[in-house]
Amino acid sequence: MRMANLFLLQLLNGAQFGILLFLVAAGLTLVFGIMDFINLAHGVLYMLGAYLMAMFALATGSFWLGLLLALGATLAVGLVLEWAVFRRLYDRPHLDQVLATFALLLILSEGVKILWGSAPLNVAMPELLSGSVPLAGPLRYPVYRIAIIAAGLATALGLWWLITRTRAGMLLRAGASNRPMVAALGVDISRLFMLVFALGAMLAGFAGALVSPVLSVDPGMGDQILILTFVVIVIGGVGSVKGAFAGALLVGIVDTVGRIFGPIWLKLVMDPAAAAQAGRVLAPMLIYLLMAAVLSWRPNGLFGRPS
């Protein structure tokens, strides 16, 4: 029974972590899939969202006002970056894009440090969402994490509606499958790209702002999430938002559940000391093993189109 409770709790935790990854991955996969553009600076936008949130929440004294301002600000940053930097890189080879966006990553990280210092910052949790609710036995679950799950699901639903039910979404899908044809039909592709990019930036910023009360807001936070995000979009299939959602949940749950239950399950087949040792070694590798397994089964990812 206790095991079942723990498993349920871990499932919730995994879903919450996955939803968070989805918010960052959605923007990256859109930009990658539709614009064929590799953006290593995407994690920095996530970090920027958290820092802007910290700044605005402190300045206004309100979590909600801070969140609103941070969203607007990351959208603006996305637009400015697209206009100033990324626009010039669309027609260049991937290596140039990687180099330029990596440089941007370094510049923005250093900029954040100059502006806000290198010590981690704090964002206060709103009163409404603090505290925890009893789950089962001695286990409790933080209200704020439930709120993260809800906000992420709402965003996923909104994206689904945007992509499948609106004209802009139709153009997005069309742009992803055949860019020259969409341009030939008279659609302003560069404006479309700008919007996609700004939307992606805002989603990453939203994720950063959302986790700022739970995680340390520090200059390294963008790098940590970027690698996981790439794993997510490769598993889900590059360019597919649906894939990003499935991939993110899968990575979140496998990582979180595997960390605890890997060693426990290993104990069933080997002696405890060896199981503990193997569990420790295997746990960090789990998501990469998952990626390898998915890719050997579906080389283009779960929802990827054959290239």
Binding site: R2, N5, L6, L9, Q10, N13, Q16, F17, P120, P138, L139, R140, R145, V214, L215, S216, D218, G220, M221, Q224, I225, T256, V257, R259, I260
Partner: peptide
């Protein structure tokens, strides 16, 4: 590591007398 929910769930399940941590920097904040 960013998210410690898995470890915290175990701590909650064990209900030990105390916890001892070495988690420098951002890890500790998280």
């Amino acid at each position: 590591q960013l998210d410690y929910s898995a470890e915290l769930a175990q701590i909650a399940a064990f209900q030990p007398d105390a916890v001892y941590a070495f988690l420098p920097g951002g890890m500790g904040v998280n």
